[in-house]
Nucleic acid binder design. Structure first.
Lengths: 195, 195
DNA sequence: GTCTATACGAAGATAGAC
DNA sequence: GTCTATCTTCGTATAGAC
């Protein structure tokens, strides 16, 4: 009777577990336990594990889109929006420290597995990249908006990985401040020296 | 009769496969096939898969140490040594594009698995970090050598991850040039603005 | 829609012959 | 030291009752 809700619960639990334990290391038994349903009942909702992954990615696309819209709504200026992006490293700090970036780590795992859904996950990076580029364009950097967006995305990935490795919060705070300085430089009247 | 050699071959094959496919997704059968020995013969050399992992990490520590020594030998100046580090992104470009950074990706995987050897792998980061800090100190940045080292390490991780995601060589070339500019800024007489 | 029971294969690990 | 054979556990997936 609660079919659609069970499906949604499965996707939610799978999303969390794929992030925390990795896609391969998450079994149906793990997900079933999290949702408290029988293992066999799974296949009424999904034909295979890959199908769950597709649903998880779709869910992440929806959530990311909503997140970017919220950031845009809460921050009227492009400069403030870029800070919202940088602030994510602190807001999600605990999770990143333990499990890394949800997008980066899944991309790497699926790349190594030669998994067909890899490109779909990279699409999540696209969402951030395009949104960031939009902000840089609004700051008058039309020519290199895309490159600037990738640079900021690159930094957030690097910080996330080293945060997971070293679990050093001071490092993250320091790097976030450097990212803000860099954005200020880019947003300034004269073009920045380093880019 | 070739016992020690077989052991070395196993470690070498495991090293490569752990990198390319991930630790969890590499089976004994995979390694056995690569070395062309029987699956069962494994346990004469190693008691468990974790023991192979330990041996692989030890091998990587030795190789990394040798690499850093070679870089120091081939490049007399600290500035040149830092470029050698940056150049790694291009030298190992194809592998990074497909499998990411060997250190970063294994750190993330073992972190998610809550694996006991995680800290040993982070020790590989330490080797690079300390070596880089040494170069920054030689450039007169005694006070923040460690932070500068972590910053460069962070950038290389970020570039590696986005290279695996987007497979865009131009992005890597561009980011490498930015890293060089940043190093020049740091190495210059006046302290850099962004750090 | 959800359950139990079960088939099937893969993977880690062991025993014992050569 | 290396082999074959085998045990056991786990994970994906299916069948069929309720």
């Amino acid at each position: 009777m609660r079919g659609p809700e069970t499906r949604t619960e499965i996707i939610g639990a799978a999303d969390r577990l794929f992030y925390e334990r990795g896609f391969e290391h998450t079994s149906f038994a793990d997900i079933a336990e999290a949702v408290t349903i029988a293992r066999g009942n799974f296949y009424y909702h999904f034909k295979s594990k890959d199908e769950i992954l597709s649903a998880v990615i779709a869910r992440r696309v929806a959530h990311t889109t909503a997140l970017l819209e919220r950031w845009a709504r809460d921050n009227p200026t492009p400069r403030g929006r870029l800070s919202a992006f940088v602030g994510m490293l602190e807001v999600n700090g605990d999770a990143i420290m333990r499990y890394g970036c949800p997008v980066g780590t899944l991309t790497i795992e699926l790349s190594k597995l030669l998994h067909g859904s890899r490109d779909q996950v990279v699409g999540l990076f696209d969402l951030f990249r395009d949104w960031l580029a939009e902000q840089f364009r609004a700051l008058g950097r039309d020519a290199d908006a895309q490159a600037l967006a990738l640079h900021l995305l690159m930094r957030s990935q690097g910080v996330a990985t080293l945060y997971t490795a070293y679990r050093d919060r001071d490092f993250v705070i320091r790097e976030m401040a450097m990212m803000e300085s860099w954005i200020d430089e880019v947003a300034g009247t004269q073009p920045a020296a380093t880019i």
